[in-house]
């Protein structure tokens, strides 16, 4: 890995102290971000399992319900469908808030008011029509839960990606750069010290010779 030393900094003890502080902070941030990353991945893997099973269920049942409705539609006139849908009208009310997962604000939706599932059967409508509506009524809670979990998973995935980039940037860029800057300052300071020592020795030598 190539590291880039900041050569335009002044190689002083003060600067080395400052760089040492920066290194300490960067290492602490790296550790904290790694902990955050681990926890987020753990949470994500729990949620994604649930997401997958809910989606499979919703896809299966919803396709079935919609196919039944489309089939029933062919046996009825548009006016009859509209009238039957109005008869079935079902109210739903949600509370929408947000919750915090490792500093990430994700949605939290819950049903406040849902009419109990009534297996309403109208005499004028085909069986498939009533069956599709009953199936959809049963799916309402699951669809809302799926929406909640899928959005949370999507937001978590984005955040995990961002955190991983930050960790990599610290691990492979910032920390090595600071370390090489400290090394550069240390070498310069040592060199200066050696130069001064040699200069003093030379002066002493010259003084001894003149005596």
């Amino acid at each position: 890995m190539m590291t880039q030393t900041t050569t335009n900094i002044s190689p002083t003890r003060m600067e080395r102290l400052r760089q040492n502080d920066r290194l300490k902070t960067a290492k602490r941030a790296h550790k904290l971000l790694e902990d955050k990353y681990d926890e987020m991945v753990h949470k994500f893997s729990e949620l994604i399992k649930k997401n997958r099973s809910l989606r499979e269920l919703v896809e299966k049942k919803l396709t079935q319900a919609l196919q039944l409705f489309v089939a029933a539609n062919t046996q009825m006139t548009t006016a009859a469908v509209d009238a039957a849908l109005a008869m079935h009208h079902h109210a739903i009310s949600l509370t929408c808030s947000t919750q915090n997962i490792m500093g990430l604000t994700v949605p939290h939706v819950s049903i406040v008011d849902l009419d109990p599932v009534k297996n309403t059967i109208l005499l004028t409508t085909p069986d498939k029509f009533d069956e599709s509506i009953n199936l959809l009524q049963q799916l309402t809670t699951i669809i809302i839960e799926l929406a909640n979990i899928e959005k949370t998973c999507s937001m978590l995935a984005d955040e995990i990606q961002k955190v991983r980039r930050r960790i990599n940037s610290l691990e492979y860029n910032l920390i090595p750069n600071i370390q090489s800057t400290i090394k550069f300052i240390t070498m310069k300071l040592d060199e200066n010290q050696r130069e001064t020592q040699i200069r003093v020795m030379k002066i002493k030598d010259m003084q001894n010779k003149t005596k």
Partner: peptide, 22 residues
């Protein structure tokens, strides 16, 4: 309008959701 859940799509398919409050 309930202002909670909306469905967008072909009329022949999504119309049924109006029966469950969407």
């Amino acid at each position: 309008f309930s202002k909670d859940i909306a469905v967008i799509g072909e009329q022949a398919i999504v119309k049924v959701f109006s029966a469950i409050g969407y």
